[in-house]
Design a protein around this nucleic acid. Structure first.
Length: 110
DNA sequence: CGGTTGACGCTGT
DNA sequence: GACAGCGCCAACC
């Protein structure tokens, strides 16, 4: 049994904490976990989230607010569909008012 | 053990 | 403002 799940779990914990109607970026999670520049690792962990149906990966986008990982979901439109379902408007695979719906794990301390 | 890939991000031009 | 290149680190071949 590898401890790698522990690493992914850290990402899962944060993603689960994302409030409804909010989104965050890979870099924000990486920074919160202290992984710095490990944004790619966060995305990699998300890829393993397929074993964790409780992981709202659709709430995680890149720092541009673009649904870069939508192609990894069951359906290409699944990610956008879920976001719109929570009141997040998506246009051209990009989140509208991204900075408005953006949620940073660092706010937890505020 | 070495090279490539990747749901990213930043800096430079 | 758009495009290209580099870095960062774990997983995969």
């Amino acid at each position: 049994m590898k401890n790698r799940e522990n690493y992914f779990d850290l990402v899962y914990q944060v993603v689960k904490l994302i409030p409804k109607g909010r989104v965050t970026s890979y870099g924000a999670i990486a920074n919160y976990l202290g992984l710095k520049s490990g944004a790619r690792m966060v995305g990699y962990a998300m890829n393993a989230s397929h074993s964790q149906p409780d992981i709202p990966a659709h709430r995680v986008v890149n720092r541009n607010g673009v649904l870069t990982g939508k192609h990894h979901f069951k359906d290409s439109s699944y990610m956008q569909e879920q976001l719109e379902r929570e009141g997040i408007l998506v246009k051209n695979d990009k989140i509208i008012d991204f900075e408005n719906v953006f949620w940073d794990p660092n706010e937890l301390t505020i």
